[in-house]
Design a protein around this nucleic acid. Structure first.
Lengths: 210, 210
DNA sequence: CCCTTCATAACACTTTTTAGGTATTTCATC
DNA sequence: GATGAAATACCTAAAAAGTGTTATGAAGGG
């Protein structure tokens, strides 16, 4: 278990948030903010040496995507836990972050007490996340034959798949995406072929699990 | 946090399992088995007074369903955590248990170390459960318009719905359930009517959420 | 400039699904 | 014993989905 203070690093480009977090952490028992970074580049250099317990990493950084930063850092600092910091609960980004190696995420609007709790949870091997995200994670990490849609489907195909998931008919999807129904059918067909399935439901099961 | 020992009560009618659990718990650091019950009636009487930290409750008890017992006890002993004990991973029962107030469940075949871990998790506010069940729970508690299938669909309709969810065709479902395809179609039609939808995917979205 | 991928679209054809109407049997309940 | 819910099953028909094939223009990499 952690013997003493939990050392936390912050990577955040917005000053108010950055300083607010540092203040919160430094003034809380058992926590200390060891360092702050305003961009990914500096963070990459500094964090490989400092190795804090936890890094609060903003997803939207000016120079580099926070997700990429985590992917790189997690390779080099295996013991450091990464918590993504984000404004809104963007499924895709959060999910990608977790795949990149983050252990959880916190919304920037999260109450101070809950931020500390989230950090503690991560240190204790937990993963603070909403049940929405948990669902995606569960589906992805535990499901035998769930597939990572992002790596085999083209952007348009993913759009079509989303509409298919809603239960819309080809005609309705065509209207929604402003293409002809034939195009929708072609996309659907290509999706099915890539996923090696023969129906909408099978495709959804493969991609979203169940 | 819990200051000392975690007190665990056991409600289980099968002697070998009951005694095995007691032995395990009493011989583990930080755990103590405060009491054992062989049926629900005795448990109801005893537990309201003893208030252990955790109750391991068998789902299949001779006199009363363990789920009902939890429903009643959770009212009176709000702080006590209930973990359902079950032989096989029966979605419906486990789900009902969680609705009744249980915090998690453990399979009887679970390895001793994992049983202790599960108990610890529950005490720490966690919910030991497979990702399968977690998904149902999440869907049920978080989803806007998900419908409680159990209260409007007949048993056979629920079976058919499950098969529809797998992406099977009517013909395949007919084979699986040993009825004619026409029967499957009738069931599907009735399901759709009850759920007020017009397609398989819509039905699945309503019931299982997404 | 060629090659590949992607988005778009069309045509023909088959299979599956959905919709509506009926009917029989069983089983529990009143 | 009537009533009603549930499971079973058949018929017809239309709508939707899935399969095979082909084609064109745009974008990007080599």
């Amino acid at each position: 278990m952690q013997n003493d203070m939990i050392t936390v690093a912050i990577v955040e480009d917005i000053r108010e948030i950055r300083e607010g977090l540092k203040l919160l952490i430094d003034n809380s028992d058992g926590f200390t903010c060891s360092e702050v970074y305003v961009n990914a580049e500096d963070a990459l250099k500094g964090l490989v040496l400092s190795r804090p317990d936890v890094v609060l990493m903003d997803i939207n950084l000016p120079d580099m995507n926070g997700i990429e930063a985590v992917r790189i850092l997690k390779e080099k600092c295996g013991d450091t836990q990464f918590i993504m910091s984000t404004v809104y609960e963007d499924d895709t980004n959060i999910f990608e972050s977790l795949k990149a190696g983050a252990s959880g995420y916190l919304l920037k609007k999260t109450a101070p007490a809950n931020i500390l709790q989230g950090i503690t949870e991560v240190v204790n091997g937990g993963s603070p996340m909403s049940t929405q995200i948990a669902r995606k994670v569960i589906a992805s990490f535990q499901k035998k034959d769930s597939i990572d849609e992002n790596e085999i489907l083209t952007p348009k195909e993913k759009e079509v798949l989303k509409s298919l998931a809603k239960g819309l008919r080809y005609k309705e999807i065509a209207g929604e995406l402003n293409v002809s129904m034939e195009t929708v059918r072609t996309h659907a067909r290509n999706i099915y072929e890539k996923l090696q399935v023969q129906s909408r439901t099978e495709a959804l099961n493969k991609v979203y699990g169940r």
